[in-house]
Design a protein around this nucleic acid. Structure first.
Length: 274
DNA sequence: ATGGCATTTAAAAAATGA
């Protein structure tokens, strides 16, 4: 039996471009965000690391750029949002995970847009590891995995995307040997990602580019972007009901080279109409 | 191997990040 939310709203028959972007401060990066929206025109955008309380989300600027938005803010840290072009309805399905390990941290928001369930997540960093932050990361990952399993039982199109803070394989790190003890690359975390994907999800960028070096993050230090010393930590996971619609995917790498930019680049996929 | 940079909050320096 399909849940009611699948039938929600107007369905517009068009290819859908969905993007994810860890903005690292939605107000500090607002000029960069607006320029990127204007230049690339995604239909749906998942944002992470708003670093803004609920009332400081720059809604009017985003509306002026042609987008609706829902968001889950938090003072100073974290914060996630889903944007959709003004002609697309956003039906919020939940904020926070079921049995969220810490309700005070705004790391998950989920909505239905044009017949697709969009889960927007900001998985904890987890450093230093081992330690309480690493334990929290693993607990959060467990709850995400349980929720992801639940979503699959609906047999509807689901896109789980955001900053997973995990490099899935050595292919996703410029110098893997330097990261083996880091919370983004430790065996437990890679195993957790692998375990999640094994439920039946498709890693969209890897599916289209199995051999390529793809990065989504470049440190501010040591000219990491100039040297292409990056990490692939922002991901798109597609449910079986939508993975066949995958047309294209990429990283808007040039945005990382702009002034006052995030240390992440925007990542996107394009999906065929149903 | 280390430290390098950038954000927010709030008024200097701490906490956080990856």
């Amino acid at each position: 039996m399909w849940p009611d939310f699948y039938y929600y709203g107007n369905f517009i028959h068009k290819p859908m471009k969905i993007a994810t972007y860890n903005v690292n401060g939605v107000n500090g990066r607002l000029p960069v965000l607006l320029r990127w929206l204007n230049e690339t025109s995604p239909d749906v955008v998942c944002l992470q690391e708003l670093k803004a309380p609920q009332e400081k989300f720059p809604l009017s600027a985003i509306q002026d750029a042609g987008y609706n938005a829902i968001w889950h803010g938090q003072k100073s840290w974290n914060g996630v949002a889903i944007l959709a072009k003004s002609n697309l309805e956003i039906k919020e399905l939940r904020r926070g995970l079921p049995d969220d390990p810490d309700e005070a941290q705004s790391r998950y928001i989920e909505a239905s847009v044009n017949g697709i369930v969009i889960g927007c997540l900001y998985l904890p960093n987890g450093n230093p590891a081992p330690g309480p932050k690493f334990d929290y990361k693993l607990r959060w990952f467990e709850q995400l995995t349980l929720h992801a399993q639940k979503l699959l039982t609906y047999n509807v199109p689901v896109v789980l995307t955001g900053d997973f803070n995990v490099m899935p394989t050595e292919q996703d790190v410029y110098k893997p040997e330097r990261w083996v003890d880091d919370a983004l690359f430790r065996p437990e975390v890679r195993a957790a990602f692998k375990n999640l994907v094994a439920q039946g999800w498709t890693d969209a960028l890897r599916k289209l580019y199995p051999e390529e070096t793809i990065y989504t993050f470049w440190d501010y230090f040591r000219n990491a972007y100039g040297r292409n010393a990056g990490l692939r930590i922002d991901h798109f996971l597609l449910s079986p009901d939508i993975e066949g619609r995958l047309l294209a995917a990429g990283v808007d790498k040039q945005v990382r080279g702009w002034e006052k930019t995030s240390d992440h680049g925007p990542v996107w996929i394009e999906l065929a109409d149903k």
